[in-house]
């Protein structure tokens, strides 16, 4: 009946709930990590942990910008297609010109362009984000197939894929890049006016607009960044696989959104924390990794992942009500 916003009682401020608020998901991750280290054979080894980190690097990078998208009250389904398209385009241009910089520029530019168009359609023209990015997801996926004729494009420039498989201090380069993304977007969210404004837009778009927040511009910037980062992740993935593959990363958008939701980002906008998103990404990767080590068949893994997502969201609701 009285389900208006003000009717929900604020959570009590016991020390535990404050700790839970700021670091709840990281705590869950830590517990899971310790549990898996003890009970799952081969889990706690350098090789496995490196593999785990690599496996979440793509999702991690894109989750940074998806967090902004969700915080501002939108979302973007086209990221998986952009990852594939950027890889294919980058590989094609590198092969044709022999110039890595040109390939990288083409891939990043096209990703940013896709994001920009998404942003203009959503924020300026006013088409629903679900419809807009559902359309661009299919268009861009199609373009990837067209550009590659449906086949993987092998990269002939050694320096590029050597970079994708290099490591610094024993940590693979893609993982460093993901950490870099988390740092940059964490700063952007917490320490800049841009981050504040994004949250205000997600919390109440009309009020933000009347308060002089440039709503359209910020949304376009967020979508453009989303496209740019997805393309960047696509390039890194292509470097790791030494080829641009047009059918990679299908369904990635949903994994990214799942990780953000696990990290407590509100789908209705206005609430986001970078630490929790990092935890969400790590939990997703850890569970996947542990299930593989335990030889759980992939069919069951889908079920388990869905249940974990539901469980996390319900835990969060329960916590809010307590």
């Amino acid at each position: 009946m009285s389900s208006n916003a003000s009717a929900s009682a604020p959570a009590s401020a016991s020390p535990f709930s404050r700790l839970w608020d700021s670091a709840g998901m990281l705590l869950v991750f830590a517990l899971l990590f310790v549990g898996c280290s003890i009970f799952v054979e081969n889990f706690f080894s350098v090789a496995n942990l490196r593999g785990l980190a690599l496996s979440v690097s793509t999702i991690g990078m894109i989750a940074c910008t998806m967090m902004f998208c969700l915080a501002a009250g939108d979302f973007d389904l086209s990221v998986g297609s952009v990852v594939a398209f950027a890889g294919v385009l980058g590989a094609t241009v590198m092969n044709a010109t022999g110039n890595v910089a040109l390939g990288v520029a083409a891939a990043l530019g096209s990703g940013a362009l896709v994001g920009f168009v998404n942003g203009v359609l959503v924020a300026r023209v006013g088409i629903n984000a679900l419809i807009t990015t559902l359309a661009s997801m299919q268009i861009v996926r199609g373009l990837g197939f067209i550009a590659s004729d449906g086949r993987a494009v092998g990269i002939r420039t050694d320096s590029f894929f050597a970079f994708g498989n290099s490591a610094l201090l024993g940590v693979p380069t893609p993982v460093w890049l993901t950490i870099g993304c988390f740092a940059i977007f964490g700063v952007l969210l917490n320490l800049t006016i841009f981050g504040r404004n994004a949250l205000a837009i997600g919390g109440n778009k009309e009020a933000a607009h009347l308060a002089g927040v440039p709503v359209t511009r910020i949304k376009v910037v967020i979508f453009t960044l989303q496209g740019l980062v997805a393309a960047f992740a696509g390039l890194v993935l292509a470097a790791r696989m030494t080829s641009g593959q047009p059918n990679t990363s299908q369904g990635l958008e949903l994994e990214v959104i799942s990780a953000c939701v696990l990290g407590g980002v509100s789908l209705s906008g206005g609430v986001a924390r970078i630490g929790a998103v990092v935890a969400g990404v790590l939990i997703m990767g850890l569970v996947q990794n542990a299930m593989n080590l335990l030889n759980i068949p992939p069919f069951y893994q889908y079920v388990a992942r869905g249940l974990i997502l539901l469980g996390a969201v319900m835990l969060d609701r329960f916590k809010r009500r307590a």
Binding site: A5, L199, G203, E206, A207, G212
Partner: peptide
């Protein structure tokens, strides 16, 4: 509907503009 951003803090609301 048009004044406050209910789920953000008093300080953020005051400093919004």
């Amino acid at each position: 509907k048009e004044g406050i951003v209910a789920i953000r803090s008093v300080a953020e609301n005051i400093n919004l503009s």
